[in-house]
């Protein structure tokens, strides 16, 4: 990442907005489509002001139809545009999934490289904001499980900007999930100039010797907090995976070979969550370094509770600390 001189403290929403604006200024084929993304600037205001700058030809509030948003984006991408499609909430991705699963993911392979789909499908993701039903899910595993799709989840404003620019420039379809509880949770110094963070590369956020924590999105901060509270007793290494598909196996294996232990943290339900795959990668590639079973701290295998009870659901600092302690004491 090229570090620019001028930085400003911004929220994740503002960082994403800036990334979109700069890519649109630079590349006339970049366009935005989705529900309420125009004049309204998106329900979370990620596209705020872009309609005024680029007009209704390039920032398009579509009719209410997720299959059409994703499917039309595929066609646009095949024919030379670079659509950044927004799904208003991850809970409404299932109709878009049809198109992503059946076509976005497979077009390059089916056509032996003749047709490609350089699109981004963005959506606010995850819970913790006291939202309605179907507004707090973590569906990353469905997309990760689909060969041909890339999946990216940023963990901070600075990460969000660099990763989104890379996603827009990527030659393949990228599903970009934005943890909505981080949207305005904190500001971070973000370079004003454009910069990229490469897809497929994890980030060692905190170095440690005794145990590795793998996390992404909103769970990164929670995991770091757990690691910090244990700093006098356990030396924890925390890795932000950033890109979940293709995942940075090298970074994971290198870390676990050093620490000998791993805990994976995700908001999504435990059953068939991405933690299962990560655990298998470790088993396959670092088995002889392991001093304890790989553990997962995840959402329960239940639907996400309505707001009054949602805090029961998500992994929190206590649960992560307990698992770290148990694993080190194994």
């Amino acid at each position: 990442m090229a570090v620019a001189k001028v930085t400003t403290a911004v929220t994740m929403v503002q960082a994403l907005n800036l990334a979109l604006r700069q890519e649109m200024e630079k590349d006339p084929s970049v366009m935005i489509l989705g529900e309420d993304v125009g004049k309204n600037g998106g329900v979370f205001r990620v596209t705020d002001g872009l309609y005024d700058i680029f007009g209704e030809e390039r920032v398009i509030s579509t009719p209410l139809a997720e299959t059409a948003v994703a499917g039309a984006a595929i066609g646009l991408a095949i024919n030379g545009m670079k659509p950044v499609a927004e799904i208003q909430f991850e809970g409404f991705m299932p109709p878009a999934f049809d198109q992503m699963f059946s076509h976005a993911a497979k077009m390059r392979n089916r056509s032996r490289g003749r047709f490609t789909v350089p699109m981004v499908l963005r959506a606010p993701y995850g819970g913790g904001v006291r939202a309605l039903e179907h507004h707090s899910e973590s569906p990353e595993a469905y997309f990760i499980h689909t060969p041909g799709l890339k999946v990216v989840i940023p963990s901070s404003p600075q990460e969000a900007k660099g990763l989104l620019i890379s996603a827009i420039r990527d030659p393949d379809p990228v599903v970009f999930l934005e943890p909505k509880r981080l949207y305005r949770a904190f500001k971070e110094e973000v370079p004003e100039d454009e910069y990229t963070i490469p897809l497929g590369k994890a980030n060692v956020v905190k170095e440690g010797k005794e145990i590795t924590v793998l996390a992404w999105g909103a769970m990164l901060k929670v995991s770091l907090e757990a690691a910090n509270r244990l700093k006098d007793t356990i030396s924890v290494e925390v890795i932000d995976l950033r890109t979940l598909a293709p995942v940075d196996e090298e970074a994971i294996v290198k870390s676990v070979k050093k620490t000998g232990r791993a805990v994976i943290v995700h908001e999504a339900p435990k059953n068939c969550g991405f933690g299962a795959e990560l655990s298998s990668i470790i088993m396959e590639k670092a088995f002889l370094s392991l001093k304890a079973p790989v553990k997962r701290v995840a959402g329960w295998d239940t639907p996400i509770p309505l707001p009054k009870y949602e805090d029961y659901y998500y992994p929190n600092v206590d649960r992560i600390m307990k698992e770290l302690q148990r694993t080190v004491a194994f």
């Binding site: 529900e35 309420d36 004049k39 309204n40 329900v43 509030s61 579509t62 009719p63 209410l64």
Partner: peptide, 11 residues
């Protein structure tokens, strides 16, 4: 209206 989309732009 459908949030910010007027009926005339829906269909």
């Amino acid at each position: 209206w459908a949030i910010s989309l007027p009926r005339s732009k829906q269909t």
